[in-house]
Computed example of a mutant assay.
Amino acid sequence: MFDFQIIFIFIGCIATAAFILLVFGQHLFRSQQYHPRKIITPFEQKMFIRLNEAFPAQHVLAQVAFSALITSQNYKVRNRFNRKVTDFVILDQSMNVLAVIELDDPSHEGKEEEDALRDAMLHEAGYKVCRYTEIPTVRQLKQDIAS
């Protein structure tokens, strides 16, 4: 009789664990795959605020995909910019791009050639690109975008 009680308790524990896994397991596995993250870094947040101060009548967009800005009929060319993202894009009231803004933190050190290639793609498409290593003043931003 004692052995049957242990077996029933064991089976009950397994059944309870299976039930919990069935009900909550899908949620547990999903939560391990996807996690929220900040859209922009604290350094980029400061730039976003400064851009909005400098251009209150324009639209400032953050983290814009290159594929929203440029395209090509050639698949190999599209592959060069497929997963690239700009830091900021400034749009006028008619939703035309005034400038693309890149903010280079220390992680860009040693990537100058890669940054130059990114800028060249955007320039070829007809965009003005302004690249900064520090948060510029409102005056500097207005001068850079106007010129």
Score class of each variant (00 low, 15 high):
A17M: 02
A17N: 00
A17K: 04
A18K: 01
F19T: 14
F19E: 06
I20Q: 00
I20L: 08
I20N: 03
L22M: 10
V23D: 05
V23R: 15
F24Q: 05
G25Y: 00
Q26L: 08
H27N: 12
H27V: 12
F29C: 01
S31D: 14
S31W: 10
Q32F: 01
Y34T: 12
R37M: 05
K38I: 02
K38G: 00
I39V: 15
T41H: 05
T41W: 05
T41E: 11
P42L: 02
F43H: 08
E44Y: 02
E44C: 00
E44W: 03
E44Q: 14
K46G: 14
F48Y: 15
I49R: 14
I49M: 04
R50T: 13
L51R: 04
N52W: 04
P56T: 08
Q58V: 01
H59F: 14
L61V: 09
L61F: 03
A62N: 11
A62H: 03
S67M: 09
S67E: 02
S67H: 06
L69D: 00
L69S: 08
I70F: 15
I70A: 13
Y75W: 12
V77T: 13
V77R: 13
R78N: 13
N79D: 12
F81K: 04
N82C: 10
R83G: 14
K84V: 05
V85C: 11
V85E: 04
T86E: 00
T86H: 10
D87T: 10
D87I: 04
D87H: 02
F88I: 00
V89M: 05
L91F: 10
D92F: 09
Q93H: 10
S94Y: 08
S94F: 13
M95F: 12
M95H: 15
M95Y: 11
V97H: 07
E102H: 04
L103T: 11
D105I: 02
P106H: 03
H108Y: 13
H108M: 01
E109G: 02
G110F: 12
G110V: 03
E113Q: 14
E113M: 07
E114G: 11
D115W: 00
A116N: 10
R118T: 07
D119H: 06
A120K: 01
M121F: 10
M121W: 05
L122M: 02
H123C: 06
E124A: 06
A125M: 03
G126L: 09
G126V: 03
Y127G: 06
Y127C: 02
C130Y: 08
T133C: 07
E134D: 15
P136T: 07
T137L: 10
T137M: 03
T137Q: 02
V138M: 07
V138I: 12
R139H: 14
K142T: 12
K142E: 14
K142L: 12
Q143Y: 14
Q143D: 14
D144C: 07
D144N: 07
D144Y: 04
I145E: 09
I145V: 15
I145C: 10
A146N: 11
